[in-house]
Nucleic acid binder design. Structure first.
Lengths: 148, 148
DNA sequence: CCAACCAGTTTTAAATCAAAACCAATGGAG
DNA sequence: CTCCATTGGTTTTGATTTAAAACTGGTTGG
């Protein structure tokens, strides 16, 4: 590509988020991390991503404080990658993408995975933005305000 | 790049979603569309994206049934791009990205925009996955189940 | 101690991207 | 009606990124 125009001066939160995790692999790495994957080789096998790309993405995610490294919990000398609090906060993003995909990207007959509540065994209902009183709001009922 | 490995056979909804909108521009185009932008030139000026890239992305989004074209509402012979129902359904994704960005990607003193409820003038509360009874659930309280 | 494994890094070729030039159709001024 | 600026792209051309595979060096198991 020509040099990527950095959106670092962007005042839109969506643009900044996309700048950090808006590529083909970062969100899938985060998804796997939510799923308990933590080792380099496990990410690599799970995603089928090239190792150099995985290496660079993991480094970026660690730099962005979304993942952190620590000594492997299984006693080996290797390290593992785990979500930070900032990374855990991406849960709604991953769930929103998952639910949208569930609704629109599978043919009716096609099987796909769904997100369940461990406690009740019921599917997690579709997430939606809500007003202060808990009622759902649509995009046309909201407006983006620039703070002064 | 070497040829992109298509994730079309992927059974994970997150992977399919990322395959459709997981690039630097598509989600920003959708965000602008939520904001009322509909004309080629307006997207181009708003995003600062190269025109050929914008053209290709708009075509992809139309093919994916996220946007659709129709005659411009202002009487000119040009066309405009508007969100379909499928595109409107990306609202939770955009809001989740926005809210994560608001929380983590701005220094405390830095100004940024926030999403408000038009009716009440109050900020939209942070979205979170909920259990069937409306209580928030964390990632560790959920599990991904593959349907048979 | 040796072989297999893990976690990367380097190398190389292909694909994509960004910028700018180019082009056709539209619309507005006079 | 004519000229010219605007709109909405497409084409061309390098720069950059990506993917795949080969390579490296420490680790672990036998």
């Amino acid at each position: 590509m020509a040099r990527r125009k950095s959106t670092i001066d962007e005042t839109c939160p969506v643009a900044r988020s996309v700048d950090v995790i808006g590529d083909r692999w970062s969100l899938l790495i985060v998804r796997d991390a939510f799923d308990g994957v933590s080792r380099f080789g496990d990410f690599q096998r799970s995603l089928g991503v090239a190792r150099n790309i995985l290496s660079e993405r993991l480094r970026r995610l660690v730099e962005a404080d979304i993942l952190e490294t620590r000594p492997a919990s299984d006693g080996t000398a290797y390290q593992e990658y785990v979500l930070t609090a900032k990374g855990e906060s991406l849960f709604p993003v991953v769930v929103a993408l998952r639910q949208w995909g569930e609704q629109y990207l599978f043919s009716h007959s096609e099987q796909h995975s769904i997100l369940m509540d461990k406690a009740t065994g019921q599917p997690i209902p579709y997430m939606t933005p809500q007003s202060g009183d808990g009622s759902a709001v649509t995009s046309s009922e909201t407006v983006v305000k620039k703070l002064p």
